[in-house]
């Protein structure tokens, strides 16, 4: 403690060690709680306005029997939360959505991890900066344009088929299928995974990898025993950043999935834009949120261990 060795004659009584740090000329004292509140207020005010208020509004809507617009009186009801029981096909859609989220996250994790590893281990300086900018490029393009450009590639006699026709016959087009949706989503969310893994991998000391090699570890062992465990925080935060928006996505499923592109995201969007049933849309959203939170709660042990490493 610095105040133990300090020869400064403090006016404070012994035991108020914290105050000594301010020195003998400390200004008028503001109580700790007041300072904390004042400093946090802008952030909380913004959060309230931008997040809590809209969420709370939607939460209230989810208990109403119809969209509260116009003159008709509204009533309180819990029936929208029974949607998964009343309309059984929603369970299938929810399952498909989770499977889609799983595959997208898994593919992003594998590609993103190795892309980040290649960036960290095989590039330096200018070259690395350029590659990082190229990776971020999808963020700079409009999402809609990005997804529609995939339809140009994937449709029958599209770009992919033209390439295929150089070597074979027929069509390998897979537009309007689940793989097409996953492809579009992977393209959109891969940069998050690359960046989070990159940040985790760049902090690993080269000497740690060299130490493992000197002890007899080949590349496979270095990868599974050293790199992946040490990059786990990056992989996990990348997975969260990918999985959550993916299972709520509606643009990619709708444009690239066509008829098979029914996901919870599109169903919810329909409730707001087509069916004008905001309460059902809201209740489905909150059910989805609950599912996501439940999944994270289940894996929270793993998350904590990852964050601590």
């Amino acid at each position: 403690m610095p105040n133990e060795a300090s020869p400064l004659p403090g006016p404070q009584s012994p035991g108020t060690g914290l105050h000594d740090l301010r020195g003998p000329h400390s200004p008028r004292k503001i109580p700790g709680w007041a300072a904390t509140t004042a400093l946090l207020l802008p952030a909380y005010a913004w959060l309230t306005l931008a997040v809590f208020l809209p969420l709370a509004t939607m939460f209230v809507f989810s208990f109403l029997n119809k969209t509260p617009m116009g003159q008709a009186p509204v009533e309180f009801t819990l029936r929208h939360y029974r949607a998964f029981i009343d309309q059984g096909y929603l369970v299938r859609i929810a399952w498909n959505t989770l499977v889609m989220g799983f595959w997208t996250t898994l593919i992003c994790a594998v590609l993103g991890f190795f892309a980040a590893l290649a960036l960290v281990r095989c590039t330096a300086g200018r070259q690395r900066e350029t590659l990082l900018v190229l990776i971020l490029l999808p963020f700079w393009t409009n999402g809609l344009v990005r997804v529609f450009s995939w339809t140009m590639v994937l449709r029958e006699n599209g770009f992919l088929d033209s390439l295929w026709h150089l070597v074979g016959d027929g069509s390998i087009s897979f537009l309007y299928s689940r793989p097409a949706i996953v492809l579009g989503l992977v393209h959109g969310y891969l940069p998050y995974m690359i960046l989070t893994c990159y940040i985790a991998l760049i902090t690993i000391d080269d000497a740690v990898i060299e130490a493992a090699q000197s002890l007899g570890a080949r590349w496979g062992t270095v990868l599974t025993r050293i790199l992946i465990p040490l990059a786990a925080p990056g992989l996990i935060s990348g997975a969260v950043l990918t999985f959550v928006p993916v299972i709520g996505s509606f643009m990619e499923p709708r444009i690239l999935g066509g008829k098979v592109g029914m996901t919870l995201g599109t169903v919810i969007e329909d409730q707001f834009t087509q069916a004008f049933n905001w309460p059902l849309g809201a209740s489905l959203s909150f059910t989805l949120l609950a599912v996501v939170l439940a999944i994270f709660a289940t894996f929270s042990g793993v998350l904590k261990r990852g964050a601590a490493a």
Binding site: A207, V208, L215, G216, P229
Partner: peptide
Amino acid sequence: PVWGRNIGMMFQSYALFPHMSVARNIAFG
């Protein structure tokens, strides 16, 4: 390659595996 040379190496930065206990660090080789 390095892993086939049976060398013992010490680094300036210690280079211990931060996610393993002391015993597991030593048992790695």
